[in-house]
Design a protein around this nucleic acid. Sequence first.
DNA 1: GCCGTTTTCGGCCCGACTGTTTTCAGTCG
Length: 549
Amino acid sequence: MPSNAEAAEIFRNIADLLDVLGERFKPEAYRRAARSIETLAEDLGAVAARNELGSIPGVGEAIGEKIREYLATGTVHYYERLKREVPPGVVELLRLPGLGPKTARRFWVELGIEGPAELATAIEAGRLTGVKGFGEKKIDQIRLALAAARAAPRSGHDRAAIESVYPVAERIVQALRAVPGTERAEAAGSFRRCRESVGDLDILVTSTAPEKVFDAFTALPDVREVRVRGPTKETVVLASGLQVDLRVVEPAAFGAALQYFTGSKDHNVHLRSIARARGLKVNEYGVFRDDERVAGRTEEEVYGALGLAWIPPELREDLGEIELAARGPLPPLVAQEDLVAEFHVHLPPTASPSDIDRLVAEARSRRLSFLGVVVGEVDADGHARSLPPSTVRRLGAAAVEGLTVARAIETGLGPRPEPFGRLAADYRILRPTRSEPAAFAPPTDRPEPLVIAHLGAEGTAPETVRRWIDLARRASASVEVGPGPERLDSTWARIARESGVRLALPSGLGLPPEDPTVAIALGFARRAGAGASAILQKRSLSARSRSGT
DNA sequence: GCCGTTTTCGGCCCGACTGTTTTCAGTCG
């Protein structure tokens, strides 16, 4: 079964092999294609069927042909040939930190070393001593890297889920903001772009006393190792294994540095080619014409100097956003202040009328205009439970000026469960079940589903998710987006949005202020290119009731 | 191998840091 992920993996492996073979530009070309394919919101097969492989950034004639070969046969001849040319162990050498293609190639060609085990033996036998370019420190470094790789064979390439990085980023940024001399401190990189997973955490600081910032950074409680420390950057590894890069720049360069360290790589490369075309140079210190800095203090300035509108970080993947920004300001993406409706709140079965009062009070203080509370649900075993009748009654009378209060039931597909027969509900939250593949038709019973939740539940096949999104479209329902295994990530959110399905985002009601769920859900929706109109709102509901029943 | 307000050929982002070098190569992001 061909998959985008496997195709990307093949092209990445081809890049590594070409690297070891000493190719100059092809490896990056294959990696670029791999990155594009990975973030594609659609199956390669579907794109190929429309004859549109060439529209994928970084995919041209040659790679397009290899994709078609892969889709048809499951393999790529070119890849198989390269694998026969290079011993597998030589590619493994590339995984060692500090050891790149040039060195791996030298080991292989000059010393006949064909893998990590042979390299270790060679070092212990003193075969590297006296070889040009290998001093004592370098050899020690390699020995340590080999030992680390033996102890944890697959570490170093793991990416952390963004929700787990949030508290870490928050803590570090706060700590650095507290350092005397710090003017600004921000997390950048894929974290700021709100990617689902984060490889390294990038932190950017402007300060009048950089040394103090580096000292505070090194002294953070969970720093396990300092990997690099220079006058403008430092890299540490936390106890969790997360690598954190810190850069300190002068305030006049903050915008340029933030832009640069937010990436993505492809986005930045594209920006620079535009700069060159205009006789400009972009780096992390600013936009320069000859030696004169023409922009740098803010990101808006940097984009402006290149003739572009500012681009939200979540869109910076070089997937067409730059071309859009060249034509004028981008349409606004959904923002925190658009999240004025909460459609999916659970209360414990023991909830009392006064719990309702508290919930309503919180909804008002958050300026929500809609509050939907689950009053009855069917759990995974088919057992139904509902809130006490007195609580439900209180809910019915809870609406206040400016706040609509609604009752929801949450069920799987199929006939409405009997226990809810007399329970008045305003809408239904549908929870997909994997065991109902034949039932992909819009339910006709009332109330109709408004939200499809828990869709990303672990183990759900992509094809099934696709069918649920299609069901949502036909039923005019929305799908939940956000972090965690039970909501959809930004790639799926984009697929949903592009097929006209609204996205349901949490409002944060009932969550502590430091909980990142809302920020991440918002980030995913923004990555999907969603504006406020793509989000399920109170008015989406009123529009439905007017046109329906 | 890709790509084009610099190009259909000839480029391919740019700088920091480390180690090994007396001026640079390799790696990394």
